[in-house]
Design a protein around this nucleic acid. Structure first.
Lengths: 355, 355
DNA sequence: CTGAAAGCGCTTACAG
DNA sequence: CTGAAAGCGCTTACAG
């Protein structure tokens, strides 16, 4: 590898000056600057990042962490169908990080060089991140009971949580307005004339599930309708979970004209159940999803849904994190991003129902 | 941060000895070893990775690169529907890398500290990777015209290409047997009695598309059937591309009883077109896909497909790469992994066709 | 504007 | 078995 030493020699200056040119830290005579640039291109010099990091004591690296099952790796989570939505987030995060000149690390090697220590103990988990000079963490906390989450939230490592609210000395969060989004979805269905609306809130163990359920309840209450508990069907977040829950509901032959699903992936599972029962959408049943993943516009029929603003969430997460790393000590308050109704063909007003 | 200095002091030894205990490089008296471990746990010491890297001149980091559109970032590619398959690969790669104690970097920040250089010029692109001490690259080359691919294949950086064959002094590849897989798929359809089989080979500009087409042609020829060119429908790899191509084919009212799709995502697009034409699968038309992504078992009907062995591909890619980094100078030959027929409900024998 | 020197926190021959 | 010293390739006060 070409070193700054060689560049310096060729340009007839000291390594210090080469470094100054690289960083623009202090002014260098135009003339010498030119000589140095010439030497750099002549040799094909690239400053080595390890040395830069060693010297600056920083890595410009942020880690992406998914907490789902206690000891799983990151991608093993993200490939599950119910996490499909996060891929869109990841895409935008990568772009935003690139703008800000940070790298994204998917930590996969064991954190410790010696084996006496248990990686997953909350305390040593944080030490391990610090030892690796992770400057910030973007965390998706799904399994809220994982003790590493609290350890992270209370550590000194700047952290932004996506989708669930955590606060700490150096931690904040950003998420969609699930309550408001669910409310708007239900209002829209009410507006179309639907009165008996089934609700698949996802997993009510998680706040993100409960929030959607709450929006459903509030919208109904505010419009003056009573909720029929038999139409509320908790389930897991996966495609199959929703499919199964829908099959059960259909088997029971309940009376309803519309369905609110807590995610698009779930809606697509429900759609398949309806399909198997030869129930036409939206002629017989309307259905509305949540997220607006790209598959939604390709489902049969294309799905009406509440879009989460992935761009605002991702850019917000990154800029907040960068600010916490580089900027003032003030930790920004948790951010709530509003959702938007996207009307496609899976919803129709009750009056158009064909018998 | 706790340093080895502090540990050494507390244990009453030199930093050298602490280091020796950490690496097990040379023998240390049992007694002092114990004292040192005690000091480490007492202080919560974790060796800092930056210093380790600086000293060892290596990073234990491998980069994941997707070459698709000239200047795109990694995740912006992977979230496209036609790359959904690679998520399964990524999941296994992460696990294998973890085993081997390497980190996965998704390079996103600009490669250069100074702006005089164009990152995407093949030469400087390699220098940039070297400057970042990337020890190896896992590359998915889709846009084969990207000059960075050749630069990488001929560089000194150990590289394993997935899905397309590239060879170089320090580069090899691993991929599924697309020709063989396509052949087996067609043979299976022939066995079911189908004679007029439409083929959606994906994008024939790419070898991976052409290989599947070749398998189709060979299987037909070997069984003694002539190929009707009108049934071969090239298209892009995306869901919509296949959907559009299928709509066109259906509009033309061609005579065929089965379809071979080059990917599951394409098959799902075609399924939707068939659905819109109210054509029953498999009663009227059989369809077989390729890849076996998880969505395939959830499509309506569940898809018969050629499964790619993601585990063998991923583990093979990682172990080969690690071997090139750590081991002998011999570059392993390109590897071809066989595929496997997974029969589900989208295929049936022609005799069962209900008119 | 520029050079000599010290420093970042580790590791590893070299002695003893 | 263990310590003192040099080194990894940068950066940054400190002088001049």
């Amino acid at each position: 590898m070409v070193t700054s030493e060689q560049v310096a020699r060729l340009a007839g200056v000291s390594r210090a000056t080469v470094s100054r040119v690289l960083n623009g830290s202090s002014s260098v005579r135009e003339e010498t600057k030119k000589r140095i640039f010439a030497a750099m291109t002549a040799l094909g010099y690239q400053p080595g990042s390890i040395a830069i990091d060693a010297s600056n004591q920083r890595s410009r690296t942020i880690a992406l962490m998914l907490f789902q099952h206690e000891h799983g790796l990151n991608f093993s989570h993200i490939t599950q169908t119910h996490n499909y939505f996060f891929l869109d987030i990841l895409k935008e995060i990568e772009a935003a990080l690139s703008e800000a000149h940070y790298d994204l690390l998917i930590p996969s090697r064991p954190y410790h060089t010696f084996d006496t220590v248990d990686d997953n103990q909350p305390g040593t988990y944080i030490q391990a991140l610090q030892a690796r000079h992770i400057e910030g963490v973007l965390a998706v906390a799904i399994n809220l009971t994982d003790p590493r989450i609290q350890a992270l939230a209370h550590s000194e490592i700047p952290t932004v949580f996506l989708d669930n609210i955590f606060k700490g000395e150096h931690a904040t969060s950003i998420k969609s307005d699930f309550v408001g989004g669910a409310k708007q979805a239900i209002k829209y269905l009410l507006q179309l004339g639907h009165r008996r609306i089934a609700c698949f809130p996802g997993d009510p163990i998680t706040p993100t599930g409960t929030e959607r359920l709450l929006g459903y309840q509030q919208a109904l209450a505010q419009a003056g309708y009573t909720l029929d508990p038999v139409l509320v069907r908790p389930s897991g977040w996966d495609f199959e979970d929703a499919y199964e829950a829908a099959m059960t509901l259909l088997r029971e032959r309940r009376d309803f004209t519309a369905i609110f699903a807590a995610s698009d992936m779930m809606a697509i599972g429900i759609l398949q159940a309806l399909h198997e029962y030869h129930i036409r959408v939206p002629e017989e049943i309307s259905i509305i999803g949540f997220d607006d993943i790209d598959l939604s516009k390709h489902s049969a029929p294309p799905l009406t849904t509440m879009r989460q603003d992935t761009q605002v969430i991702s850019q917000g997460a990154v800029s907040t994190l960068v600010q916490m790393i580089e900027g003032e000590k003030v930790v920004p308050a948790p951010m709530i991003v509003s959702t938007r109704l996207i009307v496609r063909s899976s919803t129709a007003s009750v009056s158009t129902i064909v018998e």
